[in-house]
Design a protein around this nucleic acid. Sequence first.
DNA 1: CCAACAATTCCACGATACTGGAAATATGGA
DNA 2: TCCATATTTCCAGTATCGTGGAATTGTTGG
Lengths: 120, 120
Amino acid sequence: MESNDAVRRLSALAQDSRLAVFRLLVRAGPEGMAAGDIARGLGLAPNTLSAQLTVLANAGLIRSRRDGRSIVYAADYDAMSALLVFLMDDCCQGRPEVCAPVADLTARIACCEQPRGALS
Amino acid sequence: MESNDAVRRLSALAQDSRLAVFRLLVRAGPEGMAAGDIARGLGLAPNTLSAQLTVLANAGLIRSRRDGRSIVYAADYDAMSALLVFLMDDCCQGRPEVCAPVADLTARIACCEQPRGALS
DNA sequence: CCAACAATTCCACGATACTGGAAATATGGA
DNA sequence: TCCATATTTCCAGTATCGTGGAATTGTTGG
């Protein structure tokens, strides 16, 4: 991943409404949400939301597909992962203790792995 | 972590020079680097860099301490971890396959864990 | 074809951010 | 104390961004 792309993605997320949109889509999962539902859910004007969605899409953080009259947006998990790695790459060259806080929390992100859980 | 803080941190990182500074400090480790060395390393004017460092510090992403005539800056790994978790929280409620790309890459971030490595 | 609905594009205003010159503050050494 | 070094603060000019009203495109159903 290039630095320019990282800045574009970070800029896209560095705004109240867009961050809320992205986190909503992260929670919504791969099926995504229609633009109208996002607007209603977050209380945003349709045209304003449209501009924000364009920014997120240009950054590669979300994808869109048409479904009837609606356009459905979904988070791009691969793009987000690439950004996270870019940010923390080489965070500790040979010294495990440095990245410990990051490593600990990645376990929380990987919520569904449940390595010790008995679920499913 | 609050949404306002997340936006502040993302905004701080959403700029060429500041992103370069932060990544440089991530690589520099907990000992950090003097402001002058950062400026020379990245080819930035001292006053411009100072403004950028202030933004990163206000966002909580870096910390500073005085060492003689220099002021030494270091990345705050805990703050960064909190941001990463905030971004991807609840990324997959009960469906492990959704977060797989993220979970895979967290292994790359946790570079020093080397669970299968024989080093040290 | 026409009307209703969903979303986007166009446009302009107000606010915010990045940059660099010049001056100011703080530290260390003679 | 005086000077050089290291960094910050002040200030203003330029550029960019977020927002919302109005008009436009695309889709569905009668």
